[in-house]
Design a binder for these strands. Sequence first.
DNA 1: TGTAACTCGTACTTCGAAATACGACTTAGT
DNA 2: ACTAAGTCGTATTTCGAAGTACGAGTTACA
Lengths: 194, 194
Amino acid sequence: MSTDIRPRRRADAERSIVRIVSAARASLSEDPDATIDAIAAAAGVGRMTLYGHFKTRAELVEAALIDALRAGEETLSAVDLGGDARGALNRLLASSWALVAESAALLAAAQGVLPAGRIRDLHAGPGERIEELVRRGQHEGVFRTDLPIDWLVNVVHYVLHGAAEESRDGRIKTADVADVVTATVRSILDRPST
Amino acid sequence: MSTDIRPRRRADAERSIVRIVSAARASLSEDPDATIDAIAAAAGVGRMTLYGHFKTRAELVEAALIDALRAGEETLSAVDLGGDARGALNRLLASSWALVAESAALLAAAQGVLPAGRIRDLHAGPGERIEELVRRGQHEGVFRTDLPIDWLVNVVHYVLHGAAEESRDGRIKTADVADVVTATVRSILDRPST
DNA sequence: TGTAACTCGTACTTCGAAATACGACTTAGT
DNA sequence: ACTAAGTCGTATTTCGAAGTACGAGTTACA
C-alpha cells in the first residue's frame, strides 16, 4: 500500500524527491502561487530534475499536500486521547490549529489544481480522528446528538481555518488562539442544556 | 457619497454599466474564473464596451462584489431585528446564509484579484449588523462575553460560509441549512452555563 | 568499471486570457 | 440636426508560467 511497485529508484533520486516535496510544501505554504521554478530553486535542484519526477504542477501540489497531511497525522497520533472526551478534544484542538494554520496556503493551492473530491479524500484521516472523538463524547452523554455528525466534524474544520486566518492577520494573538478555539468548539459540541 | 462627480454619463452608458455589473455578478457567482469575454457576452454587450467602463478585471470584480453586497444589505435591512436578541439573530441568519451561498464564488474571485484589506473593508456593513446584535444580546445577558467580540462576529461568518459549502456540495439538504446554522451559531453565542 | 539512471542547463514551444490599438458605426441629448 | 459620447468588431500585442526538446555531464550501483 505504501511501497511503490515501480521499476526501482536510485538513492539520489529518492533524495531529490524528498527535497523537492519538502521545498514544495514550504514554498506553497508561504505562497499558494509559488512557481515551479521557485520551488526547484528552493529545493536546490534544477528545474528539469523536478520535471523528471513530477510531470505536472498538480502532481507536485498533490505530493506536497499528502506530505503535509502525513506529517500532521504523525503529530496528531502522538496526542493522548485517553480520558474523557472533552479533555481529549481540547488536547487534539491545541495541536490541530497550528497545523491548519501552517498549511492553509498549501490547501488553497491544492484547491486550485485538484478536484474537490480528491482533496476531501485525502482529508479522510484527520476527519475520522475527530469523528471518532465526537462519537465517544456522544456516548458519554456530553456531546450533542441533535445535529448531523458530518456537520459537527466539518464545522470544527471551518472554525479551525477561521482561527488560522484570524491569527495570520493578527486579529487574534497567537497565545490566545488555542483558548479561543477550544472555547468555541466546545460550545458547538456540548449538549445544549435547554 | 454615492453620486459620482464624474464629467457626466449618457443614459445608454448607465444602462450598459448596469447590465455589465449584473452579468458579472451572475457569471462570477457561477464560476469565479469566468472570462471577461464571457461576462461581456452574458451582458449582451461587446467586449470593447466593457473595457470602456472597466479598465481592468479587478475593477470589474470589485464592482460586482460591491453590487452583491449592496443587494445583500438591502435584503438584510428588511429583516425585523426587534424583540429579543436570540429571535432577531435567528431571523438574520435565516436570510444571511442564502446570500452567502449565492455569492461564495464571487467572493473567491475577489480574493484572487483584490487585496485582502479591501475585501474586509467592503464587508464592514454586514459585519456591523451582526456586531450590534451580539452586543445587544450581551447586554440582555443572553450572549457570552468571555470571547473577543470580533472573533464572535467573524466566526459566524466562517460558519455561514461552511454551511454554504456543505449545502452546495449536497452534504446538507437545503431545507435543513437554516436550522443547522441557527443551532450552531446559537451554541457559539449563548452564554455558557458552566 | 561499465552502463543505466539521474541531473540540469539552455532554449524553445504552448497557451489562455488580459489588455491595447484603430476605426467605423450608432445613438443620446441639446 | 449636429456632435460628442458611446458601441463594438477585428486584429494585435503582451505576458507569465507551464511544459517540451535536446543533449552533455555526473553518479549510483551491480
